[in-house]
Amino acid sequence: MVPLEYYLLLSSAIFCIGLFGILTRRNALYFLMSVELMMNAAILNLVAFSFHWGNLTGQTFALFAIALAAAEVAVGIGIILALYRNFGDIDVMEAATMRW
């Protein structure tokens, strides 16, 4: 049986990849994908702990989170479309008009 630590290491690795993507990329689509990666890292944690303690609650919760992620993508794509319409680009550094 795979020990819990392996899952957690994998999860944190995916999380860090996602975080790295958010901090370095300027393309909004990359942003969205990175957010998905971080979210999935969290879901992986839920499943891993659920498996470890022999309790199904975590897995049920993971299913809900996956559905939520799908909804989030829909909203995210919508935002990116609006971004493109307003700024003619999907570079997140361009959309900097909402400040002091």
């Binding site: 901090l23 400040r99 002091w100």
Partner: peptide, 17 residues
């Protein structure tokens, strides 16, 4: 302090992190 509100999403993400 309001200068930290740059409007650039990347900066916010960095601050959060």
């Amino acid at each position: 302090i309001r200068r930290i509100q740059t409007g650039i999403v990347g900066n916010y993400a960095l601050l959060l992190t």
